[in-house]
Structures are given as structure tokens and as C-alpha cells.
Design a protein around this nucleic acid. Sequence first.
DNA 1: GTTACCTGAGTAAACGATTAACTAATCAGT
DNA 2: ACTGATTAGTTAATCGTTTACTCAGGTAAC
Lengths: 331, 331
Amino acid sequence: MITLKEIAKMANVSSATVSKVINGKDKYISDATRKKILDIVEKEGYITNGIAKSLKMKNTKTIGIIIPDVMNLFFSELARGIEDAAEKKGYTVILCNSENKVSKTKKYIEILQEKMVDGIILTPPEKCDFNSIRPGRTPTILLDRDVDVETNEPSKIGRIFVNNTAGSYKATSHLLSKGCKEIAIISSDTQNKPSLERIQGYENALRDKGYVVNSDRKYLESYNIETGYNGVKSLLMDKRIDGLFCGNDLIAIGALKALRELNLSVPSDVKIVGFDDILLSRYLDPPLTTIKQPVYVMGEKAIEMLIALINDEQIDDLIILETLLIERDST
Amino acid sequence: MITLKEIAKMANVSSATVSKVINGKDKYISDATRKKILDIVEKEGYITNGIAKSLKMKNTKTIGIIIPDVMNLFFSELARGIEDAAEKKGYTVILCNSENKVSKTKKYIEILQEKMVDGIILTPPEKCDFNSIRPGRTPTILLDRDVDVETNEPSKIGRIFVNNTAGSYKATSHLLSKGCKEIAIISSDTQNKPSLERIQGYENALRDKGYVVNSDRKYLESYNIETGYNGVKSLLMDKRIDGLFCGNDLIAIGALKALRELNLSVPSDVKIVGFDDILLSRYLDPPLTTIKQPVYVMGEKAIEMLIALINDEQIDDLIILETLLIERDST
DNA sequence: GTTACCTGAGTAAACGATTAACTAATCAGT
DNA sequence: ACTGATTAGTTAATCGTTTACTCAGGTAAC
């Protein structure tokens, strides 16, 4: 690899001059010198050594994102939104899959700090208190899963979440407005805020309309397809149910499969609402009514907020985004 | 951030000694000194500055992956496989979405080279000749989409592909063995090797069994859901078709949707085989028979080969992986 | 004619780590 | 007592940039 110093030698100038020209700080450089340098740079195919530059400049223009799993459609959309926004701002993204494990999350945070990333975007593992993964001085955005952070938190922390309570309230109200009388919920039993809020919204909606919340209309396990499948099989064993709120779209996919096996048709026998609006939901049979999380926007906002933190700008360090009901044929 | 030099000062030793202890090259360091240093490191929460280390060591333990889009299930699986394998080998992954554009691909290659990645794993844009994106001296693995590379290629290039011809041959033969007589294909019309091979395998299978290849049984557009939908609507307009080979699973998803709308049932009226076996295929209605690409293995092999290239080890620089027919209910 | 500013460029330190080469002390063996 | 090997460290150069500071000559103003 050819270096700046070598370019300087070829052009018979100092390395300072070459640096200035390359970085456009060439107010006090003659046109002749500038051209001479640029020609050589071009001819030799010189590429800046970003590592040396980073060492001197104390930034890397790189951020890390830690998510449970890119294969999960929700997170792959998130990753894409983040990468797109980052690229536009001149940042590059290191991808880390935590598998929802605190241990892996901690390990990745350490690696990212060694790599001197300028910031981290982190979706914490489902069960995780913030103190156990505190990212030190690196600016960090906590995304998607709310976590208790002390108010006098010394680090640079931003938080971006979705209003889960309102989302599941919307979903349940929608089912009610479609005439459902016996509405069940299948969701995750993890004790973190988003999960609890999604259950809370469901319960609030029922209570507000004068219904009782019945604990044998709840099936709580995990945010995956199997849970949806098992949930329907278990809930519909002996009870009648005409409405189903699923904690996320994967659960809804499993639920649809189980309902088909039970020869129940959607939406005539049972109406279903999901949560997330992953890319696939509109191609299910029937296309799934769901609560859309503004995933791409989350990515953009996360980058925006993170860069503000990196640059020590004053910003609102908590954003709560609203969801949107997307009505399709499952209700 | 505390530096190695500061640790050295606190411990009253030279920075060389601290470096040796931290990196385990402490054969000639007394137990007392070692303990003293390690205690201070622990207490101060010292973290190595990886940038400085990289500058000196001339490696970054970072690789870049350039794929069209992580939101595409096939590539998110690939990304995951790569990241997993990389992490095990002590490498970190920079994620780049090229959107299938040559311009973005070129830009990312340049950025990755500035960041001094140790290697690149690249899925070239669909229409792309290799010379236009030549990654210079950075070791590179070309993944999934075969590209013509000159035999005297000076760069360190490895190639890993799937045997597409054999895969689509298997798919088509499977449809024939299930009794299909009128088999159509919906796939992509891009003029790259994988696309052409998938069509080729389909044609070969038909010819080998004595059927004629009929050009109005072909619908070629893109590898997406819409193509599948449009393809079925167009192919079934006036022709009878009892078997359908889809160039990938996304196409199959669209095709299933269109067939439902036409009140044709799968597999009794039309049998369908896809290609890729994305995570979702088994949850479709009906679960999709498909040609599984060994995606995770591709990721592992890619990392393995790339690290060999990085370390100048002698390896086979071309791997062609075989596919597997996964029979589900759509046939 | 002195002062002050502008222009065009060079010098050298700094960023934070690694490591080859060196020193100095101890020890075993003859 | 001398040699050679082993042990326990230090010194200082180096990786490839950026940039504060310096310098010299030209020009404009008073």
C-alpha cells in the first residue's frame, strides 16, 4: 500500500502539504502544487489509511449495532434502517448478534470499545438489567426494549422505544370494534417492559370496554412461531375464542398455521391481529392485520440521536414512537 | 480513556512490560510484576486501543461483507452465518447493503479498504463484471453469484457457489416424479450465471425425460414476491399447468398467493417447488417444497477460505456446494 | 521605512500500541 | 574465576496520519 509520505516524496513536497490537499484544507496551496499532488494520488491509486487517521483524529466513523439476531425479520429491517441512515451520515456499521444473551452482549460491547467505535446502538437481551452491561463512556442508544436507567446516569445514553401499551390497546380495540367478544392474547412471558406493556394494553382495552380479563385467555411463552402454534392449540382446546391478539407477527404466523389445522377460518371464525408488521405479514394467508412499528424510522432516529450524542450536542434523550394499525384481511 | 503508558507509570514499569503482560508474552516477567500490572489494569478498567494496535500490527481483525440487502431472508441468513463463523475466529463484521448497485458496491469496497479490513466477502450485484469492482489487494471471497474471473487474476480471490444447475434439475425432476406433465418456471431474467443455471437445470431435466421446453411456460422477471404473483397470473391465463418451479422462495410466496386467488389448490391442482429454503418456507400454506441452499455452511466456508487467504495459506480457491431437496406439502 | 497581513509551504510532535535490540543481574558448570 | 545461559526488565523506533507552529517572501498601509 502506498502511503501519504511516499506521495509527498514523489511530488517533492512535505507530507503536511499532501494531507492538506487531500483533505481540502488547501486554501494556502498553489494550484500547481495541488494539481501535481492530485495527479500522483490518482495515478498511484492512493487510499487513505483510515486506521492511522482514526488514531490521530480520535474517531473511527464506525458504530456498532448489537441485536439479538439479524435473521429475525424485525431486526433485519432495523439493521437495514440503521445502516442506510448511517451510510448517509458517513458512518459504517459493525454488526453483532447477541442471541439475546447477556454474556454475548457484554463481550460485544467490550470488542466494540476496543475497536473504538464512536457509538453503539443496542437492543438489550430480553432479561437484562442495564447495570450489568453498562457501556462505559461510549455513547449508546438503547433501542426497542426499554430498560430502567437511573436518572443520574453518567454515561451518554439515549433511548428510543415504541409505545407498546398504546399499540396493543389499538389492536385489542380493533378486534372489539370488529365484533369480537372473546379475545385471547398469545405473547411472551419475559418480564421486560415491552412485553409487560403489550399485555397491559390488551387488558386496558378490555377493561375500558367493560370486559373482564380472563387469565385462561392468555398464553405467554416467547416471541416465536412455535409459541403461536402451541398457543392456539392450547387456548382453543376447550374454550371458544373469536379474537386473537398476538404479541408479534411471528406468533401470528404460528397461530395461523394451527388454526388451519383446526379447520378454523380467519377471519370468519377467529380474527387475528399481530404486532410489528414484518415484511412478510402482507403475504400470509390471509394477509395479517397488524400493529406496525416504525422500524425504519427507528433506525433513522437512532442514528440521528447517536450522532448528536457523539458530537456532544444537546438533545432530547428519549423518543417514544407511535405505532400504526394496518388493517388487512385477518380481521 | 486510560492508556497503556499510564498503566505503566502507575506500576513503575515500562510500557513494554505492560504490553507483554497484557498479551501474555510474559515468560520473562516476574509473578510480582505481572500481578501488580494486572491489578491496576483491572482496577482502572483499561481497554486496549485497538486502533493503535491495528496500526502497528497491520491488521484489524475486521472483515467487510457486502450483500444486496439484509432484509432479504436469504442474505440475512448468510450474514448471520458469516458473523457467527467470524466471531468464533476472532473477527468482527462490517455490514454493507449494496442494493444490487454496482456504484454502491464500488463505494463500499473503497470505504472498507480505507478502514483497512483484513478481507471482504462480496455478493456481486446481479449485473456486474468483475473488473469494474476489482477490490485491489484486499483478499476477497466472491459468494453466491458466480462471476467470470480471469485465470491469471493477480488478487487474492476465492469463490464459493452453489450448484444451481443441479439444484433446479433436482427440483424439476421431483415435479416430474410427482406426475406433473406441464411444468412452468418463474424466475429472474438477469443475465448472470446463477440465474441462467437455474433455467438451464430446469430445461435439462425436461429434455432428459423427453419433454420439450416450451417458451410460453417461462416467466422471467426478478427474484421477488411480485414476480411470483404476476408470473402465475400471466402463465395461467389460458394455459394448463400442473407443476411450477420457482427460481427462489420469494417467487413461490407470490405464486402461492396468486394461486389462492385463482382458487387453485396446492398441491392437488398445481405442485410447487421453490429455491433457497428460507426460514419461512416451512410456515407457508402449504409448507413449501424447496431446494435448500446450505446458507449457513456457505458463511462458514467463506470465513474459512477468507482467513486462509488473509494468512497466505495455500487453499482451494473454488468451492461449489451442493443443494438439497426438502420435500414438504406443496408437491 | 516600519508594521502588519497574506500566501505557500515545511518541521516535528503526537495519537497508543508493539517489539527488536539491549542491559544487567543471577546462576550453573567447569 | 570465567563462560554461557537464563531471567527480568528497559529503550527507542515504528506504524501512517494530522496539525500547531514556524518561516520567508510579497504586498499594502501609514
